[in-house]
Simulated scan of single mutants.
Amino acid sequence: MRKILFPTDFSETSNNAFVYALKLAENIGAEVITLHVYELPIIDMSYTDVPVYQAEVYESLELNNFENFKDQIPMLRKIAEQHKLDHIKMSNMMLQGDLVTNIIQTVKDEFIDYVVMGTGGATGLKEFFIGSTTASVMTGTNALVLGVPANSQYEPIKKIGFTTQFTIEELDALRKLLPLAKGFKADIECLFVKNGDNEVNEVIIADWKVIFKEEKVTFHIIESKDVEDTIIDFVNLYRINILAMLNQKRSFWEGLFHTSLTKKMAFHTKIPLLALHND
C-alpha cells in the first residue's frame, strides 16, 4: 500500500491540508501517517548547580508535548469523519528535533510516496506561501511533495496543470504524474510558455503528443514575455486544481519561493503546488 506522510502542527492551516492528504489517500489507495515534530528549547541552567533539574524540565516539556499530541489526534479523526473519509487507514508519529530533518528521515524509513503539508501560518502567506520548510522538504527528498496554501479549500481534482519546456527530465516527470491523474480521473493540462528565449524543436513537441496520445493529456503552447502572469492566467482559465512542476535543484525552488510569481499565486490562486522529482 502506498504511504502519505502528513506533517502537522495541528494548526488550522495544517488541518486544511489534512483534507487533501485524506482525499489523495482515497483516490490512490494509500494510508496516511501523521507526523508531529516538536523541539525542546535551550534552557539556561547557569543559575543552578543541580543537573537533575534540567532533566526534570525536559521531561515535563516532553510530557506536555505528548499530552497535546494525544489530545489533537481525535480532532484529526473528526475531520476525517466529517468528510466521510474515516475509512482511510491512519497511524500517528511524534518525534523530537528539527522538523525538516525528521520529515526527510521518516520518508526514507517508512518508504513514503507522498508528503502533504500545509504552507503558511503565523508568518503569513506573503512571506511563506510555500516557504523555506516546504522548499527544503521538496529538495531534500524523492517523495512527491504537495504544498497546500493556507487559503486553499479542497475541490474535486479534475484538472492538473504541468509546466514544461519539453526537456527529457520533464518527460519522465510527466509520466510519474499519470498515476495521480488516473487516480482522480483528472485531465493533465501541460503549459509551455514560449518567450523567444526558450525555443523548442517542433519535432520534440510532436513526439510528446504521440507518446501521450492515449492519455488524458493536452498540450498548450502560449507565446508571452510575461511567464508569471501567463501561468496565473492559465491556472484560472482552465480551472486547474493542482499545479505540478519538476523538482529541480535547490536554488531553483528557493528562487521560485521568493519571486513575484509565488506572491502572485498566493493572492490570486488557492491551488496546491506539487513537486515532482526524477530518481
Rank of each mutant, 00 (worst) to 15 (best):
M1I: 00
S11M: 06
S14C: 13
F18T: 03
F18R: 00
K23A: 08
A30G: 10
V32Q: 08
H36F: 13
P41Y: 00
D44T: 01
S46R: 15
A55F: 14
F69M: 02
D71W: 03
I73T: 01
K84Y: 15
S91A: 13
M94P: 03
G97T: 03
G97M: 03
V100G: 04
T101M: 10
N102T: 10
I104S: 09
K108H: 12
K108S: 10
D109F: 05
F111G: 09
D113I: 07
Y114C: 06
V116H: 06
G121K: 04
G121Q: 01
G124P: 10
S132Q: 04
S136P: 03
V137Y: 01
V137F: 00
M138F: 09
T139P: 01
L146R: 05
L146I: 02
K159D: 13
I160T: 05
T164E: 07
F166Q: 04
E169V: 02
K176L: 14
L177S: 05
P179A: 04
P179M: 06
K182L: 01
K182M: 05
K185H: 15
E189D: 02
D197P: 06
E199T: 10
E199S: 12
V200D: 10
V203P: 06
V203N: 13
W208N: 02
I211M: 09
E214N: 12
E215L: 03
D226S: 11
T230D: 05
Y238N: 10
K264C: 06
K270C: 14
K270E: 15
P272E: 09
L274E: 01
A275C: 11
D279N: 11
